[in-house]
Design a protein around this nucleic acid. Structure first.
Length: 516
RNA sequence: GCGGUAAUAGCUCAGCUGGUAGAGUGUCAGCUUCCCAAGCUGAAAGUCGCGGGUUCGAAUCCCGUUUACCGCUCCA
């Protein structure tokens, strides 16, 4: 990386992933859609393999963890209970000069508070003047100046209330302008439009009554697990502690969405909620921190690419939280979150649904709402981590250059390329024969065009770990050349060994074994 | 969201102060080739991001818009 800055490197990774069919911008022919991306023919394979590796490590390797696939649409009350509806419903406004962002309602309320302070000042003045004979109620009802201010306050409040209720944000802005509210930082009244920041995308379901028809696209997959807690626990006869895993799309209407696929409006999460006995959550929190870090390390990336970042400021529902950060080309950023979520979610769903969401503990002979330890990883971020860690621009001994993706073999989109050395003398037919044998176990690619060197480089560029080359010798003694992506070394092996070698080197079971 | 920069063939870019678009590479077809991208022949490919304006004439100047990148801001 001596000659290439990290910024250039990241740009190269982005254009490489487009050029070789990993990531395309959404709706590109219509100039794209901001912060939405599509996975291409190689991207979808890599993404699927990462998802599989996660799924196997969580569900297949833990007898007490099972998976579900909950719908993206959920009953609207779900998001009331989770806190998502109320927490993200604020009208926002920016001051163009100071570039500070404010909640429009807070600006107006602060202004009203100042006016009320004026009244209070008059009241206090009068109180000292009249002494014991002072009747505050009467004073407020009769004093001309106080009445005047109070009328203004009432008018503002009424106007503001109506504006909010009708969702008239332009009116909210007019109120701010009419009140001549200035930015405390810049002192100017140069305001942007008032915007409602909605975290959640909404849509309509059916054509029935107004309230019930607005539904949201889930901003996190976790709630699908919480609302199914009892279903899974009962039908699976799960005993605490146990976990429910899920992968799936989530949607967030981010204000600023940037850095390629790092922050997208539509993205995929891989989450596992682990239900534990209250009081044991910290123990499990630490266990899962370690388990998840081991999973990341099992990919064989260099030491020091991952680190923990403990949260000091905790969300209202958590009593411990940390991130696993990865060193992307643009710095250390959050890849996975591990949160001790207490009984906040299940407790709230119990409250809102009126259904008892408890686990009966036979040891204690009583029921309780379990505590939850969550592991939540962004699949797209993981994809970006693998891609940026694998991408290498190399200068070879002969002076030429190659771009190679050193993707861990078991995650590579294409496992093996089958290449006849030349396109004649029966070599293509022989190659097809071999291809037809191994294609049932692995995604393979057959190529006969261009020189063998070109074909090797093309496979390097998409991260194919092995190339099998068929030459004239193959026709005589059934031996082939296997060529390794990372070292570019070649070996002569009997064709009968191809399947065996492939199976050993790309099988997901090998890295999974390291995890236990 | 604010400010700055950019957008021309799949990719990397050239196109000077306005005169009807070009290279390298890649792609495709064929020939050649016994192991690491650069041999030969031929072909396809762009209403110059989009919309408007100025002009006899706009890839080029002006305005708007979309998308991306950088900085700021935000991030339950």
């Amino acid at each position: 990386m001596a000659s290439t800055s990290n910024e250039d490197l990241f740009k190269n990774i982005i254009s490489h992933s487009r050029e070789y069919g990993f990531i395309f911008q959404s709706s590109e022919i219509y100039d794209g859609l901001s912060a939405v991306y599509d996975y291409g023919q190689n991207g979808v394979e890599l993404k699927k393999n990462i998802r599989d590796y996660w799924w196997k490590s969580m569900v297949q390797l833990h007898e007490n963890i099972v998976g579900i696939d909950a719908a993206i649409f959920m009953h609207p009350t779900t998001w009331k209970a989770s806190g998502h509806v109320d927490a993200f419903n604020d009208p926002l406004v920016d001051n163009k000069d100071s570039r500070k962002r404010y909640r429009a309602d807070v600006l107006i309320e602060d202004h009203v508070a100042k006016m009320e302070a004026k009244i209070q000042k008059e009241v206090e003045k009068a109180r000292t003047r009249f002494g014991d004979a002072f009747n505050e109620h009467q004073f407020r009802a009769t004093h001309v100046r106080v009445l005047e201010i109070q009328q203004k306050i009432d008018a503002i409040n009424q106007r503001f209330k109506t504006a909010l209720e009708t969702g008239n944000l332009e009116e909210v802005r007019k109120i701010i302008l009419d009140l001549e509210i200035a930015c405390p930082v810049s002192g100017t009244r140069n305001w942007t439009e008032v915007r409602q920041f909605n975290l959640m995308f909404s849509t309509q379901m059916g054509s029935v009554s107004e309230d019930a028809s607005t539904i949201y696209l889930r901003p996190e997959t976790a709630q699908g697990i919480f609302v199914n807690f009892l279903n899974v626990q009962k039908t699976g006869r799960m005993k605490i502690p146990f976990g429910i895993a899920q992968t799936g799309k989530a949607f967030r209407n981010e204000i600023v969405a940037r850095q390629f696929i790092f922050r997208m409006r539509e993205f995929e999460q891989m989450e596992m909620q682990y239900f534990v006995k209250p009081g044991t959550e910290m123990e499990w929190y630490h266990t899962w921190k370690e388990t998840r870090m081991n999973w990341h390390r099992s990919l064989g990336f260099p030491e020091g690419k991952h680190r923990f970042h403990d949260h000091l400021k905790l969300a209202h529902y958590a009593n411990a939280a940390c991130d696993i950060e990865f060193e992307f080309p643009f710095g250390f950023k959050e890849l996975e979150g591990i949160h001790s979520r207490t009984d906040f979610d299940l407790g709230n769903h119990e409250k809102f649904s009126g259904k008892k969401l408890q686990y009966f503990d036979p040891d204690l002979n009583q029921g309780y709402i379990p505590y939850v330890v969550e592991t939540s990883i962004g699949l797209d971020r993981m994809f970006l981590a693998v891609l940026s860690q694998s991408y290498h621009e190399e200068k070879l001994e002969d002076g030429s250059e190659r771009v190679v993706l050193r993707i861990p073999s078991f995650l590579a989109p294409v496992k093996c390329a089958v290449l006849p050395l030349v396109k004649k003398d029966g070599l293509p037919e022989k190659a097809r024969e071999i291809m037809d044998r191994i294609k049932f176990d692995h995604l393979c690619m057959y190529e006969e065009k261009d020189s063998i060197g070109k074909r090797y480089r093309r496979q390097d560029a998409i991260g194919t770990p092995f190339c099998i080359t068929i030459d004239h010798e193959t026709l005589q003694d059934n031996s082939v050349t296997i060529r390794y992506r990372d070292t570019m070394l070649q070996e002569r092996i009997p064709v009968t060994q191809v399947e065996e070698i492939l199976m050993e080197k790309v099988d997901m079971a090998t890295p999974l074994r390291q995890l236990t």
